[in-house]
Simulated scan of single mutants.
Amino acid sequence: MKQGQIPTLKQIAKRLKLSTSTVSRALKDHPSIGLVTTMRVKKLAAELNYEPDNRAIFFKQQKTFTIGVVLPNLSEAFFSTAISAIEDMATAHNYTVILGQSLDDEARELKILESFKKHRVDGIIVSLSKNTNNFDFIETFQKMNIPVVFFDCVPDREDVYRIVSDLETGMIEAINTFVSCGHNRIALINGPESLLASKQREEGFIKGLKSNDINVNRDYIFHTNLSEKGNQEAVEELLSLVDRPSAVICFSDYVTLDAMKLVREKGLVINQDIFFISFANFPIWNHIENKPMASIEQFPGKQAEKAAEILFDLIKEDETNKGNHIIYPSRLIHLDSSKQTSL
């Protein structure tokens, strides 16, 4: 065999005076092939650095054994936890993960999905960009028989597989915690209004206020587009109110970090002049001295693992006992119980 030439099954078979099918079965430890023959085949394959032609295997099985995953931003602990869970599940199924970050850019997200289509991945997991409004790709993948499962940030559609956190449970716990500490001027800094999750948070916020006999003040509900400028505008608007809120629920730990920074710059004291609770239990809070009172855990690992589990069942065309809308309750995690004192 010439130097640099890639060894093939036919070449191994020719060298050993065996049929190609015998060599193929021997490499797979097929019981119909004797031990001595199997050892001879494997020894020569190792000497030649033989690697199976995966393209031929994929063509025969009509699978690429890859899945595509689109996440907003891996720099966020939420999504780094999620991708670890997905990769663990993929490894258990002998699959490879192709990952793309949308960075909350709809055009970038669509390019990644287009790349997955060209690679003929066997399935896709998506946590949508905060700015996604075009869902035509769902029908495209349905026509190609490529299953898609959404988690965390999902489309407002009943005809797709969605795994989410029940934002209402944690939101109501947050409001109850603030009220128990004497707060009744409670504000919400929410995400973009177009997001399904933003609507659910606001519904939970209003429900929590009403259950505590607190009038809903629309001036206390703010929206940000996740940018530093958007966060700053929301906080400055909040602080400019004559009857300034004493407690704030932020839809993201990263928004909370920006908000607390701006509050300190205005000369106010965190957990004294103004109190915070946020989503979604950022691990770094354990290393920050002046932290929010609490954060709401949304279980990214559980969501992502369930998304992967459903996806692999769909790839295997096993849809038994599977709902297309799975919800995990969110839960309030107290970060600084020493600050939970009455006003």
Rank of each mutant, 00 (worst) to 15 (best):
A82C: 07
E168S: 11
D136K: 15
R157M: 04
K143N: 15
L113G: 06
N133K: 15
Y161D: 05
K143E: 14
R157I: 00
T169M: 07
V126W: 11
I124R: 02
N131E: 07
A90R: 01
K207Q: 15
T169W: 01
S194N: 14
M144N: 11
L128G: 05
D156E: 04
T177D: 09
D136G: 13
D105T: 00
F78R: 02
I186T: 09
K207E: 15
I112R: 01
V97E: 15
L196F: 02
F137G: 10
Q101K: 00
E139F: 02
A90K: 01
I124E: 01
L128N: 14
D122S: 10
D122T: 08
I138S: 12
Q101H: 04
S211A: 08
I98G: 08
I146D: 05
V97T: 15
K210F: 10
R201D: 03
G170A: 11
E139T: 11
A107I: 14
S102E: 03
H93Y: 13
G170V: 04
S75F: 12
Q101P: 03
P72I: 06
N145A: 14
V164R: 06
D122K: 03
N134W: 02
L113A: 05
E109Y: 07
I112P: 03
G100N: 03
D156I: 01
E87G: 01
V179H: 00
G123I: 06
D104T: 05
L113M: 01
D156Y: 00
V148D: 00
S129A: 13
N145P: 08
D88Q: 08
P155C: 05
T177N: 09
I175K: 09
M144Y: 03
E114M: 07
S129D: 06
R120K: 15
Q200T: 03
E139C: 06
A197P: 04
A82M: 12
I175M: 06
M171W: 08
G191S: 09
R201W: 04
E193C: 04
A187Q: 15
R108Q: 14
N131M: 05
